[in-house]
Design a protein around this nucleic acid. Structure first.
Lengths: 118, 118
DNA sequence: CAGAGTCACTTACCTATTGTAAGTGACTTA
DNA sequence: TAAGTCACTTACAATAGGTAAGTGACTCTG
């Protein structure tokens, strides 16, 4: 019995970890949020996400596309435009992450940077 | 007008990024989940989170404590026990992340590892 | 019509974070 | 006496991230 419960818990823990790692790499959630908020082009996303470099944006977009969270559409204008949009799966993820925005606002005063501390 | 809307969106994007980075470092969410599911001691957490090393657990616990997501209580038995529990803030975070568990289950078939791919 | 600029990226290089393995000190059990 | 547990540290190699410069196909400015 305890074994079974443990197994379920372990399973939940593992799946949660998987989900989080899929989308939790640095910059990925911010990029998805930027697209969700209407930035669909490379340079628009780059401008909206503070601190993000073009190298990492390029890398993250590839990963997100590979994981079917975003779609990449080439529009043959000159210069060529690339339009990134959320897949159904990606949009559903953004819905699932909305409560985190609320949490951030509720506990805002306690926010202190995690990185860049000795 | 457009400027104001953009500003709000940028703000939301930034705050979201901050929240996510606070808790989104590798292993942090899984550790919090493990504590939430009843693993309160160092070795229990280590056993439940698959792939986590003791070095990183130690480091993450310090960071999480510093950010007031968990409390650390020393119980002077022999050998000494250390009991980690979620703070109110940490517990609220786990609530906010529940929808992500649902998302993981809904889209489970599409899960493929993000790391360890060329 | 030469030079500068835009767009969506790459490549090169260096630093920071992570993974792996081994060690620590105060104890208990065989 | 030897081996084991607990909650960690330390040392070092591997991987990820940051910074800067380059690319090719265009357009726009003077």
């Amino acid at each position: 019995m305890t074994l079974k419960i443990d197994h379920i818990y372990d399973e939940q823990c593992r799946r949660f970890q998987d989900s989080f790692e899929l989308v939790g790499k640095r910059w990925s959630p911010a990029i998805l949020m930027a697209i969700n908020l209407g930035s669909h082009r490379f340079s628009e996303i780059l401008a909206r996400v503070e601190g993000l470099s073009d190298r990492l944006l390029s890398q993250r977009l590839k990963e997100l596309e590979r994981n079917r969270l975003i779609d990449r559409e080439v529009i043959p204008t000159t210069p060529v435009q690339i339009r990134y949009t959320l897949t159904e799966r990606g949009a559903d993820l953004m819905q699932a992450l909305q409560p985190l925005v609320g949490w951030g606002l509720r506990w805002e005063p306690e926010l202190q940077p995690m990185r860049a501390v000795s």
